[in-house]
Design a protein around this nucleic acid. Structure first.
Lengths: 363, 363
DNA sequence: CCGTGGTGCCCCTAGTCCCTA
DNA sequence: CTAGGGACTAGGGGCACCACG
């Protein structure tokens, strides 16, 4: 008789007379559970579970009764309980260092959409501090949340990550241009893009191509610079010295002031659109016409690039494809499959009005 | 011998003889549980729980033993089990319509950082389709994930959302400029910003200020246009007709071509920086000097705005503050508190080089 | 053999009980 | 005797497994 429980509210008797419901957790509103639905439909909880998971061996009449009860009560399966039972949460963690960059945002967008399509949700962990010391903490937080896998988006701006160690017990995909250590990586084909840009300028008749590089410690930047150098060498041209920026428009501006003051400079390949924008501003100020006096090519193809003055010729990279592919590779791993280690997404040169043949013969 | 368990791991005998551990869920790698830690440390599971939750009544020696065992085993509390027990998952759902806008991204960044600081994680649901029909599905997915609250970021670009109904049983904050229906909202003070921009141009001596507006169905856009109109009226100036764009640089370019061809136009206030950029491109093409012939003010203060040609005077809005405040209001609700309905975050005018006094007397 | 109901367990923590100093 | 601290138990919601008609 102690646990008589003809309805739900029973199942434990309180020794002290106090009302049980007023104990602390008043704000945690719990929705209807599988048991409530079962009671309302006049079936057992297991049958409700079967309906909810689309199992086949349920009579049509029963199924309809149950679905009706679910709708009436506004039942939603409890993901936490499901995760506890199954060990899978249908959720993936995304670690990002900053959202305030065009590429990261696009990538995140693509990951989120692809995940949503696959029935996964995204748990986002921002890492304001690129210090590797904070890294394990982020990983641990994701593990606590029972994520099934992790995508790490290393920012192109991030420089020092030599000592970041990835745990091996959680499927992981890294979006970054540093293929080693045996993890799965995806990134834009930085080298291919830089080659396209450089070849474009050479084919227009420029005798040489100057390069405004990203920070030397950045892998994407060094890939771009390396391919630029190789392309020039292949064409029999001696690469001039690189002017290094830090990806910002301001650093591009500084580099532009320096290059613009040298009359032999007729073609500039900037490692990203922001620096290209800054360089163009410097060229404007120096009175050098674009593209008549100097041609400029960027890298990224920002949405605004077509509205720069003049509209910027640039290398388009598909962050969408990178994000989608990253998720795909992660799901493959989660399913226990083998994914290829290094994955490069091709770029596309977009020619606009910041490039033309040189008006004066170079050199 | 089957389950001999001479130590505490016992407590249940398996009816069928099968080994219990080998049952089916092979792919779901489960980490060490509280029981494993307890066994390793030679204490009970409850003591481990107390240590892990920082309760006070644990002897120092015991605590250290337990923490040591945790570290050795790489133990992480299981968030799903915790959520199941407590009803709170320390997780916030964020519904966004697009990440591909500067403002949304900044806002998300701010929300994510603030949430992280408060020990909450972010579950991101993208809504590619602004159709309201998809809306309940997104909400349901979040509810399944046991989120403690929801932040909805309505995109400024989104037009028709008349029939989106917010559930009442989950704390919700809306980031948008449409204060009604009794939900909690936060947004930039659109009107105040537009007023600052307009007053700036008037105070420079311009006889009138033309406006390139955002889409008419956008609340932020109509707030900005309304305040611009009111400011002109207050100054005794009859507002000219608005040229409507769709926030894109291209639409700004079109508007710029139209306004730039009219010699009486000496001052333009564009409803966002992208349209201002497009308009400036049109003015360049038409040969009208900025700011000598025409002054231009934008709205947003994009990072690149200082590198536009010329550097753009614009209204700075703090997405960071909006995001942070939104999260704060949500946490207040989750804690059962009362949050103010309408919250406006002030703007700041940033004067750069795209504005000056008119060189010729207007009109 | 199919459809249904009953039981145990996923992991954690609140509350209570019990032991020791 | 009290007080402090460790151990035990009971679910929280859902689903795999078996038993049963």
């Amino acid at each position: 008789m102690t646990t008589q429980g003809n309805d739900k509210s029973t199942a434990n008797n309180f020794p002290a007379g106090e009302g049980p419901s007023a104990s602390g957790t008043s704000h945690a509103k719990r929705g209807p559970s599988i048991a409530d639905v079962a009671r309302a439909a006049g079936v057992s909880a297991q049958t409700v579970s079967r309906v909810s998971n689309g199992h086949s061996n349920v009579e049509d009449g029963t199924r309809i009764k149950v679905q009706d009860a679910m709708r009436r009560l506004g039942y939603r399966p409890n993901g936490a309980a499901r995760a506890l039972k199954s060990g899978q949460f249908k959720s993936i963690g995304v670690i990002m260092f900053t959202l305030s960059s065009h590429g990261n945002m696009k990538t995140l967008d693509a990951i989120a959409r692809a995940a949503s399509d696959s029935g996964y949700s995204i748990s986002l962990i921002p890492m304001p501090d690129p210090a590797s010391s904070k890294f394990p903490a982020a990983y641990n937080r994701l593990r606590e949340q029972q994520v099934d896998g992790v995508i790490i988006v290393f920012d192109a701006h991030l420089t020092d990550r030599a000592d970041i160690i990835l745990p091996e017990d959680l499927p992981t995909v890294v979006i970054d241009s540093k293929p080693d250590r045996g993890y799965i990586m995806v990134d834009t084909d930085q080298g291919g893009g830089a080659q396209q840009a450089t070849e474009h300028l050479l084919s227009l008749g420029h005798a040489n191509v100057w390069h405004i590089g990203g920070p030397q410690a950045s892998f994407s930047a060094s890939h771009r610079a390396g391919a630029w150098r190789l392309t020039l060498n292949t064409a029999g041209v001696t690469p001039p010295e690189v002017i290094y920026g830090d990806w910002s428009t301001e650093s591009g501006y500084q580099a532009g002031l320096e290059l613009g003051s040298r009359p032999e400079v007729t073609a500039i390949f900037a490692a990203n659109d922001h620096m290209a924008l800054g360089a163009m501003r410097a060229l404007h100020e120096l009175g050098r016409k674009i593209p008549r006096d100097v041609s400029v090519v960027g890298f990224d193809d920002l949405d605004e690039a077509s509205s720069f003055w003049p509209p910027l010729s640039t290398v388009h990279q598909s962050f969408r494809t990178v994000g989608r592919l990253g998720l795909e590779l992660l799901l493959t791993q989660i399913a226990g499959g083998q994914a290829p280690d290094s994955n490069w997404v091709p770029t596309r040169l977009v020619v606009r009005e910041s490039t033309s043949a040189p008006s004066t013969p170079g050199g």
